[in-house]
Design a protein around this nucleic acid. Structure first.
Lengths: 308, 308
DNA sequence: CTGAAAGCGCTTACAG
DNA sequence: CTGAAAGCGCTTACAG
């Protein structure tokens, strides 16, 4: 019963081993609590069965759902997903990506923390690892990407609100330097009329939504509709507006982007773009195989009570 | 310029290297995009600088905040945290823990998916890795644990609601087989009077909270106060009750357990137990050093508008 | 200060 | 079917 034999049994390689010997190997492992050393295996095989997913903020429902979608999908094919939270900080992201060796994960799926400041670390990482940018891009990075057609999403929401008779739309965004924010505000400004405006909050959180409601009521203008670039923000805004005596959708129609579970459970339900998590997962894993190009996903509209 | 020299430079070991040689090494690495192979390093050193955190559901705000707290804390000391989502499934948990080799992470922090069915996999893992159970325990596991004093938490909430004049309390829990659920419902039943009751929902989600509201209004009894065992559930319940024309806290006082950002942003704010994430992180990392025993954290009460 | 050598624990041609 | 040997890429006594 030699080391190579044990290896053949344990790694399930298709080379016949005497069944009785194999059984003895398995029993011995059981008894001794022996497990194959993953580092040695990775060193020898030059591959692991795990992928890394790097997200800016796991507490954001949108990213939490993305993590779940990847986890379930990869578990199905016997792979592991390790998730890293960069806390929206390009510095933490740089340190984490720097430590992410090809030897530990077969590939890295990254949602860049920032458009301007994430590029260098991701490009550096892409020198030695397979990398796909998910949901956002960073400036100047060659690695393939999967993302939403944000301009189309904005158009869908704006057209919907106008069709419902709304005249003055406020877009509530977070001034985080992300490619999706940039694309969304640019598309909105291109479509905007004189009564439309943009409000930049500090972060994609429920708290920002609440603050946005206060700012809006302090300077209501003609606004009769609101587009939030994240469900968490929309939730805070909706709740705060109601708490301050406003009716949704009567006084304010609200629509949002993410299509997370939040949109379905708010009261009234939030009109949003449908979740793209599933398609994003499939497209990014396909890009990992194939290797190049950018995938842009078409959004669709899910109408609920919040938009009237 | 030999391999050992490069190793000394790159691993920053305290052995003097000629500064000029060191510089040449660094330049060469820069140019070639060379990075130390983490698997080889782990194999040689028998340690990595990363810990694993295994949680049942990252989309649950409570766990999302726990992940963030660990991430920030470990980033500070130059370590990495890899997070694994088991989707509340003991089967996924078993596969993930089985693949989690000592060679890949220095230790595993695990929130068991289930009380009864997680024990075997965690015990098995503990044969070869340092393991600490966080927030929940699994039956029969020797590994140390950090958790909330759930009985004290229940007492705090019940006493508070009674002091506010409430007579009939409903506890809304999820029938997931977790140690915290078990401890909370047991403590509640021990304190309960004839008008108090327990409602078991399928999961710790906003949707369960909404369903709980419907069930409650279908059979209102004398209930005038509700304790939710998770903020997400409380949020769904609060929103749904308001939507169905009930006033909080006038008709129903609500209190919850987790103390996540949700409790602070609901309208009215949720009375909860204060967040223990920070203390849980510190205590669990200390246990990793020291090694044994169980830490039970004392809860405190944070009173907001939802409890009257 | 620097390099040759051993060894961490695997897997896989290769020889038998 | 089975085992001896080489080598994955590191780090660290050891010798110089």
């Amino acid at each position: 019963m030699s080391v190579p034999t044990a290896s053949r049994v344990l790694s399930g390689v298709q080379r016949n081993v005497d069944p009785e010997l194999a059984l003895r190997v398995r029993n011995a492992c059981e008894e001794l609590g022996y497990k194959v050393n993953a580092a040695a295996r990775a060193l020898r095989l030059q591959s692991t069965d795990s992928l890394a997913l790097v997200v800016p903020a796991i507490a954001n429902a949108y990213f939490a759902e993305l993590v779940s979608a990847y986890s379930r999908r990869l578990d199905l094919q016997g792979k592991r997903l390790v998730t890293i939270d960069t806390d929206e900080s390009p510095e933490i992201e740089r340190r984490q990506l720097g430590a992410m060796d090809r030897a530990l994960v077969d590939a890295v799926l990254v949602v860049p923390a920032a458009f301007e400041r994430s590029g260098a670390a991701i490009t550096e990482l892409a020198r030695s690892n397979r990398v796909v940018q998910v949901d956002r891009r960073a400036r100047g990075v060659e690695a393939p990407s999967v993302r939403l057609d944000n301009a189309a999403g904005v158009r869908l929401l704006v057209d919907h609100l106008r069709a419902r008779g709304r005249r003055s739309i406020l877009m509530v965004d977070a001034q985080e330097d992300s490619s999706s924010s940039i694309e969304r505000t640019a598309a909105f400004r291109a479509l905007a009329g004189p009564g439309d405006r943009v409000l930049e909050m500090p972060s994609f959180t429920v708290a920002s939504g609440i603050d946005a409601a206060k700012l809006l009521l302090a300077d209501p203008g003609d606004t009769d509709a609101i587009i939030c670039t994240a469900d968490t923000v929309a939730l805070g805004l909706l709740t705060a507006l109601q708490h301050m005596g406003k009716r949704v959708p009567d006084d304010y129609a609200i629509a949002s982007f993410d299509g997370t579970y939040i949109s379905d459970t708010a009261a009234p339900g939030l009109t949003t773009l449908g979740s793209t998590a599933g398609r994003m997962v499939e497209a990014s894993l396909a890009l990992l195989e194939d290797g190049s190009g950018d995938v842009v996903l078409k959004p669709d509209l899910v109408v609920r009570g919040s938009s009237g």
